[in-house]
Design a protein around this nucleic acid. Structure first.
Length: 877
RNA sequence: GGGCGGUUAGCUCAGUUGGUUAGAGCGUCGGUCUCACAUACCGAAGGUCAGGUGUUCAAAUCACCUACCGCCCA
């Protein structure tokens, strides 16, 4: 038996099968195949570090879909690739260098970028290893990287094309600025955390009066750049002051009081200080009211020369000093505690500063319009449906996308300037290029390659824009840039558009929406026909798992402990359709136990039936027919669930079938009533069906049996086999066995004690039981079965609508039995009354559907018969 | 402030067009080393389906309201 040990040991087989799959090139599709294509693009992992449990879940889902589609006859491509992840990667490498005391500036741009490449190679290797350990059917031959030479060309082409179409422009805008990364951040790269803070009330003297107007602010240092006070014109307290001026404390500048509806009279004092250069809302307000813009900060969040004595002070140091100065002046009314939402850099958690700067933008409205349409008309289907709302909400309110980043790691912006004739000041006036016809500033060249000479003055002193592109500006091209686009390659023609995108809902804006826009704009087609959003994994306390919190277990440790299949299956079992996953390691243990159960079921079949045929039996027993019929139900449910991407339901259904139908009943039955071919045939069907979820163990079992194909992955998905024979008797037998076991438990009988029973039932069913008495005796633990007799000994009674079964028990406690039966009568009577009441209701008679009425009538009759039987049984006691 | 989701057994969750006696896993309790599996087997206990109102012959399921929890956007 050493060839098939009783304990399943994943470690001894998993690596071997992955190598086998790779050698057999099972994951590499042929673009010329006649089979229908099925393509999934991996949500590219960042090269920032090791993979987490979140990746494991995300990729498991894709692997299940890929393998399922391969088994159902598709030519499958699961595209592998990684993301250079601009700011994220640069920050980790910077931190790593800083720990050694090196700043990136010490190295210079080129050397620093080389350092990042080294890091990238290291982590790309780790990530590949991890993905292989999980068993993922990724096509490694087509692996991509968003910063590869080839991919970069496409990114640059897209920038230039969009510029030519007037969809990319350079503009001055208030943006989120990270003073540590010294870079602009997109709105989506900013996270808001609520923190305890203070609300400062500052008094601004109204010129020409003795009065003050008090404003409340959480960032008092910005007052140095105030250029107005704004109040709500409907606010009676301040209405009269509009048009007046106040004196800005410390700076002693006079600034106007303006009125605007946007001010919330309820917040603070109802008066707002306006700092156009340092607050997004104030920025808009200032544009509207033509206010002055005064920048008071340097890029690193120290104050600048516009702040007199605070020049070069850090923003927080300045805050302290300013508060002291205001106090001294008598301009500080009070300080209150206040919980404020603080915007921080997603990557380094530094508080961001809004800042006016020149950046590159993509005009989004025009791209969004068709993208909204394809979701509405279901060219792109979204699962679960509720995410459509979120998608629409964002798309309808989409703002222009700031795509420039002040980083070194990324695609350099393909814009060149002539040192001789380009004047940055002139360019600034051309704030936003509204359309393609508008003039390109003199001396600026937008081109896929560096121009040798300035086309205006002929100078060869040309320099490139220092900034790089937002990382998402490369990943939004992912579904087609990886397939050869813009060339019409064989891959592109065969595998684009792709079928399913699987991702977490948190990047619906950052990525999914943008890919749809890019697909439509650059290929004229949607990039995928369905999007599946899966939940996030949270820890037991409901906290999102993240590298920084350190609350994600390392999937590799879990694989060592439980095996990859157990991890995959356990995760699917606990991943709900519409809620986040509350992770607990116990789930993985459940997966492990399930694998072991399957293993042992296979072992039993192997011991007794390995030489059977693997095709369905020609002479099925009634039990064969029964189990095939139950399996048909499972196939049908599974196929339905796959079409809606309800992978959790599938995992549950198969678990239940394998354990509680196949093992608990069928395998137990065939020990007593042997069957030919069915066990082996069905086991094969089961492992095929489970293969997408637990690829390693199913491949191993498949080979233990020497089934026909080279790999289980080349098999055909199970099909429903029509069943003609009525299996109602098997179900009734099963129920009878359960009832007898129940009595055994209630009376605390020794499992080894064989019981004698008397059964009174229909002629048909007693004939059936007569033929099948071995199964009944074996599974219920009986010795003698008598038919059609009134018991004259003390018995425990099982009363079913069409059957009475008396278990002869010598020393039975009569009181206990009477009590048990009475309780049952009470429950039955209640049920009977309810049904009778309903059946007599004229509205019910008129309105209820006929099948419902019929079923209710049958139930009533069953209950009445059962009750009658129990009453008799009590009398006999 | 606006929006979305949730509330079902001690815990984590299923419950597909309203219609059998609301299910599972884990945990608990009782009994079994029965020749595939003690990572197992057999059984049991445990639920006013958050609360309220309504629609309906019939509501965990549909509508509205309330409470609490979570998330997103401002």
């Amino acid at each position: 038996m050493e060839e098939f040990p009783s304990k399943y040991d994943p470690q001894s087989i998993e690596d071997h099968w992955y190598e086998f799959w790779l050698k057999a090139k099972l994951f590499t599709p042929n673009p010329q195949s006649k089979r229908p294509p099925y393509t999934v693009m991996i949500p590219l992992p960042n090269v920032t570090g090791r993979l987490t449990l979140g990746h494991t879940l995300n990729n498991s889902i894709q692997d299940i879909l890929i393998r399922y589609n391969k088994l159902t006859g598709h030519e499958t491509l699961w595209m592998m690739g990684m993301d250079h992840a601009g700011i994220a990667t640069q920050v980790v490498v910077e931190d790593k260098l800083l720990k050694k005391g090196t700043k990136k500036e010490d190295l210079g741009r080129e050397k620093f970028v080389q350092e990042i490449w080294k890091w990238k190679e290291e982590y790309a290797t780790t990530i590949r290893k991890q993905l292989k350990k999980m068993g993922f059917a990724l096509d490694w031959s087509r692996e991509q990287f968003t910063l590869s030479e080839d991919y970069s060309k496409k990114v640059i082409k897209v920038f230039v094309d969009l510029y030519k179409k007037g969809l990319v422009y350079r503009g001055e805008y208030i943006i989120n600025w990270c003073p540590r990364c010294l870079s602009a951040l997109s709105d989506e790269q900013v996270e808001t955390e609520e923190e305890p803070g203070k609300l400062f009330y500052i008094k601004y003297p109204i010129i020409g009066t003795e009065k003050f107007i008090t404003v409340a602010t959480t960032r008092p240092e910005t007052m140095l750049g105030d250029t107005a006070i704004c109040v709500n014109p409907k606010d009676h307290r301040y209405k009269k002051l509009i048009g007046g001026t106040v004196l800005l404390p410390i700076m002693k500048r006079s600034i106007p009081i303006i009125g605007d509806d946007y001010v919330d009279p309820e917040f603070g004092t109802g008066a707002l200080k306006v700092t156009p250069s340092h607050d997004p809302f104030d920025f808009t307000l200032a544009k509207k009211h033509n206010l002055e813009f005064i920048n008071i900060m340097n890029p690193d969040a120290t104050l600048n020369e516009n702040t007199k004595e605070y020049n070069r002070l850090d923003r927080y140091a300045a805050r302290t000093k300013i508060i002291a100065a205001l106090k001294k002046e008598g301009s500080l009314e009070k300080i209150e505690d206040y919980r404020l939402p603080l915007a921080k850099c997603e990557r380094c958690h530094t508080a961001i500063e809004p800042r006016i700067s020149k950046q590159w933008f993509v005009r989004m409205k025009v791209l969004a319009k068709p993208a909204i349409e394809v979701v509405k008309n279901e060219t792109v289907k979204i699962y679960p449906k509720r995410w459509i709302n979120l998608y629409n909400h964002w798309m309808e309110n989409v703002r222009d996308w700031c795509i420039s980043r002040q980083l070194w790691w990324g695609h350099r912006i393909p814009v060149y300037y002539c040192s001789k004739c380009y004047d940055p000041k002139n360019a600034e006036t051309n704030k936003s290029r509204k359309n393609a016809e508008m003039k390109i500033p003199k001396g600026m060249i937008v081109s896929t390659s560096k121009p040798k000479k300035c086309p205006v003055c002929g100078s060869d002193a040309i320099y490139q824009d220092k900034d790089v592109l937002d990382t998402w500006f490369s990943s939004w091209l992912w579904p087609f840039a990886t397939l050869g686009w813009p060339k019409q390659t064989r891959d592109f023609k065969s595998f684009y558009p792709t079928q399913t995108l699987v991702t977490g809902w948190e990047i619906i804006y950052l990525w999914v929406a943008r890919m749809i826009m890019a697909g439509l704009e650059f290929t004229g087609q949607v990039p995928f026909s369905s999007v599946v959003f899966h939940p996030l994994i949270r820890d037991k306390k409901g906290k999102k798992m993240s590298k920084s919190l350190g609350n994600s277990p390392d999937p590799m440790d879990l694989i060592d402990k439980y095996g990859a299949d157990a991890l995959r299956y356990g995760l699917q079992l606990i991943t709900p359709k519409e809620q986040d996953v509350l992770y607990s390691e116990k789930a993985i243990d459940v997966g492990r136990k399930f694998c072991n159960k399957l293993w042992n079921a296979a072992r039993l079949v192997w011991m007794n039936h390995k030489d059977d045929n693997e095709t369905p039996p020609s002479q099925p027993t009634i039990y064969d027919t029964w189990i095939i019929s139950e399996f048909n139900v499972l196939i049908k449910k599974t196929n339905n669930h796959f079409s809606n991407f309800e992978l959790n339901a599938i995992a549950r259904d198969i678990y239940d079938f394998v354990w509680h139908t196949f093992c608990d009943w069928f395998l137990e039955i065939i020990k007593i009533c042997p069957s030919k071919d069915t066990a082996k045939y069905l086991l094969k069907q089961i492992i095929i069906m489970l293969h997408p979820y637990i690829p390693f163990i199913t491949e191993e079992i498949y080979h233990k049996f020497n089934f026909a194909k080279k790999s289980i992955l080349l098999e055909d998905w199970p099909k429903i086999k029509a069943v003609k024979i009525d299996i109602a008797n098997v179900r009734a037998l099963k129920r009878l066995i359960e009832e007898i076991r129940n009595i055994r438990g209630l009376f605390n009988l020794d499992p080894k004690e064989k019981l004698s029973v008397i059964i009174n039932t229909s002629e048909d069913f007693s004939n059936f039981l007569g033929k099948n008495h071995m199964v009944l005796q074996g599974l219920a633990g009986l010795k003698d079965i008598d038919y059609d007799r009134t018991p004259d000994q003390s018995v425990a009674s099982i009363i079913m609508p069409a059957l009475e079964c008396y278990i002869i028990l010598a020393g039975i406690d009569i009181e206990q039995e009477r009590k048990r039966l009475s309780t049952e009568i009470t429950a039955l009577s209640k049920k009977i009354d309810e049904i009778k009441y309903r059946l007599n209701n004229p509205n019910y008679i008129r309105k209820a559907a006929p099948p419902v009425k019929q079923r209710e009538q049958e139930r009533l009759e069953d209950f009445l018969k059962k009750k009658e039987g129990i009453v008799k049984a009590i009398e006999k006691l």
